[in-house]
Amino acid sequence: MHSNLEQAELRLPVRISSIDGGHEVRARLATMGLLPGAILSVLNRGPLGGPLLVEVDGTRIALGRGVARKVLVEP
């Protein structure tokens, strides 16, 4: 079942199945280790509709909600 990263449960590892959006976003995410197949988990949701804090490869990355919606994940 595919859902986007914004809907993912906190601290539950998920696998990226694909990434929507333009070349720019995909390429930028790829350089930070957010590639299809990568396993990540959402640590926190930022205050007042702020970004998600995700962890991938031991690195923490803040992802705006708009970007997070483009990242499709599976359990």
């Binding site: 976003v25 803040a62 708009g66 997070a68």
Partner: peptide, 8 residues
Amino acid sequence: SPGLILEV
């Protein structure tokens, strides 16, 4: 405005 992608 494009969304935030920022390493912490």
